[in-house]
Design a protein around this nucleic acid. Structure first.
Lengths: 252, 252
DNA sequence: ATACTACGTGTAAAATTCTAACATAAATTG
DNA sequence: CAATTTATGTTAGAATTTTACACGTAGTAT
């Protein structure tokens, strides 16, 4: 009764963004305003809502409002990335250990990932924080120098992290791809890190939104044949698909 | 005057996360509460803050995904922690390399730290992100298993990070202290990490807000004589001061 | 069964905070 | 310099929130 009501309130707030106490009272005629206040208080304690004068608002709603340097980047091609992330999330099995990189697409993957018992390694600060919200997900942060532009880490020392670690699966994303040069990125040490994941992971899934096709960055970290699955969006060109299909790589 | 004041309010809120009108009134003694209310109203219109009963909170603060509920974080001994953080920040020299832990006090230190050329190592995810906003600060994240409750990392593997690293200075904070048991924390591996900082840092500064005095946690990571400077608040008991003074430890 | 306890809930008064309205002062403009 | 806008101060009243206490229910121990 109480638990359910509180959940309902939280859902309502997530949907509507903001509600006054009067509106809430309308939704729950069988309880008093005081009870609703107490519910809101609890939800506030949990950090799920913010109580404002007159009612409350959903934290998620506030988080949507953009502005930060990191979130700026995330507004570009958001829809495609979310779709890619959803596909990727559906491929993750319970009780497995996997690596996720620190890019924006990976960030969406972290958000979409179900709260189940998996062990995730990542070099993305924002990814780690997002995953840490989930009760059942074990998160390990790969340390290293923090790159300010994408809030992920890279470092030669990371090698020692990987030495005694094996992943079932690595899901990484790329900022650039051409068939000739493969998947490439801007930073040498980041490329090193991503190469290492290839060595340590049983399977490698690549997330690539189609806007990255045709771009070349200085450091190639994977060739076409290095990956096992390519996860992309609907705008992915048919001729590209054949390139991957020829090497028996699943494109989805 | 108005424009500047509003900017100042916004900055204050970004730093402290949340402020009551009374606190704001303290910062701006020459204007009335009504004026401040109007300022807050404008900032709310711009979407930069959220007005809550009693005051307002920064939108940025909410957007930052963080482990603990906002209310708790922003209400418990905030003022003391900020003062401690300010003191600590004033002790940091340009061009030095230092370690900062991942606690909430350290978080405030990160916010207060001037944007100058230093190299900071930390095991706090939120601390790293906060510092990454500053152009001139180099940040290195110590990797490891992410602890969900305080968003910091710890891991035996971290040892390899420290092997080739020396800090001018380590500024860490403690969740518990008694003269007999020293500084202690709840997690074994966290204690290990903090002990390592002692070994690697030329100086060790400890931030301790007085509410932590008399508490004991399972794992001691430093004794009184291990530290060089104790940074605390005004409520720090005089008899404690003498204990530190006897061992020639600076208390400030 | 009885009493005790913990929990969720309701009620209403008290406290706090917010708004609105008007008055005053400062700044800007023609 | 007057006129108009803009910023600020003051107050009373409105609205919201908190506090304190009372009630009922369910579970538990005596």
């Amino acid at each position: 009764m109480k638990r359910e009501r509180i959940e309902e309130i939280a859902e309502l707030l997530d949907k509507r963004g903001k509600l006054t106490l009067e509106q809430l009272d309308g939704f729950f005629p069988n309880v008093s305003q005081m009870t609703l206040r107490r519910d809101l208080f609890q939800l506030e304690q949990q950090g799920r809502i913010i109580r404002v004068r007159g009612g409350a608002m959903s934290v998620k709603e506030v988080q949507k409002v953009s502005g930060e340097p990191y979130t700026k980047k995330t507004t570009i091609h958001t829809d495609e990335k979310i779709k890619i992330a959803q596909k990727a999330a559906s491929l993750i099995d319970e009780n497995c250990s996997l690596f996720i990189d620190g890019g924006t697409t990976a960030m969406y993957l972290a958000k979409e990932m179900p709260d189940m018992n998996v062990h995730v390694f990542t070099n993305g600060l924002a990814v780690a924080i997002e995953l840490a919200q989930k009760k059942n997900v074990h998160v390990t942060m790969i340390g290293g120098q923090v790159m300010k532009d994408n809030l992920s880490t890279a470092s030669p020392v990371a090698r020692s992290y990987f030495e005694n670690t094996n992943f079932e699966l690595a899901i990484i994303s790329s900022t650039a791809f051409t068939p000739e040069y493969g998947f490439s990125c801007a930073s040498q040490i980041e490329a090193d890190l991503l190469k290492m994941t290839r060595a340590k992971a049983k399977s490698l899934y690549m997330m690539l939104d189609s806007s990255k096709i045709g771009k070349i960055m200085p450091y190639t970290f994977a060739k076409v044949e290095d990956i096992d699955v390519l996860i992309t969006d609907d705008n992915f060109p048919a001729e590209m698909k054949t390139i991957f299909a020829q090497k028996n790589i699943v494109v989805m």
